[in-house]
């Protein structure tokens, strides 16, 4: 894989810069640390789709032993570089996202009731917190019909970042 040494180094350096830029955005105290609770956001904002379990694995690996609750850039950088170079946590194709909603829509109505979605999202899989659930519903529920037309919602979630 690393035949072309220069090219590989350049690629690593680009990845480093990308990671540092994302990290810095969350480094509120300008001391190259971030709150451990932000790490998931950073990893995901870099285009990754980890599960909570996978995220947890990474976190235990990089959390600072002395400063609990904080993650240092020097710990985060190599781990995250590996993730990006090896293309872990790859995006889930969006047609699968729509299919997933169709699985939940067992009666094939074409929509979900807010209560249905809430039940699935807070009781199945890697459950949402109340905040997450509230925010999702505020974006997903059609204000007139008070149901979730999930096809529209998938369209919104998958819209390309400009």
């Amino acid at each position: 894989m690393a035949e072309d040494k220069d090219g590989a180094e350049a690629a690593v350096s680009e990845v480093h810069k990308k990671i540092s830029a994302a990290f810095n955005l969350f480094d509120d105290e300008s001391n190259t640390t971030v709150d451990v609770r932000e790490v998931g956001t950073i990893i995901r904002s870099l285009g990754c789709f980890p599960t909570e379990a996978e995220l947890h694995e990474i976190l235990t690996e990089i959390e600072d032993e002395e400063l609990t609750g904080l993650v240092r850039l020097e710990k985060f950088l190599p781990v995250m570089t590996k993730v990006l170079m090896e293309r872990k946590f790859r995006p889930v194709p969006e047609e699968l996202l729509l299919q997933a909603f169709e699985v939940l829509d067992q009666e094939k109505k074409g929509y979900l009731e807010p209560e249905e979605l809430k039940r699935f999202m807070t009781q199945e899989g890697e459950p949402f917190s109340n905040d997450e659930m509230e925010e999702m519903l505020s974006a997903a529920v059609d204000p007139d019909k008070n149901v979730i037309f999930y096809k529209d919602f998938v369209g919104m979630m998958t819209v390309r970042d400009p």
Binding site: I42, R44, T51, M121, E126
Partner: peptide
């Protein structure tokens, strides 16, 4: 399958929120 679907949606949604947060 339901659980798998839920996890998938949760993953997507959390990533979507992360992008917005950034």
């Amino acid at each position: 399958l339901t659980m798998k679907a839920a996890i998938l949606i949760q993953r997507w949604y959390r990533r979507y929120i992360a992008r917005l947060e950034m």
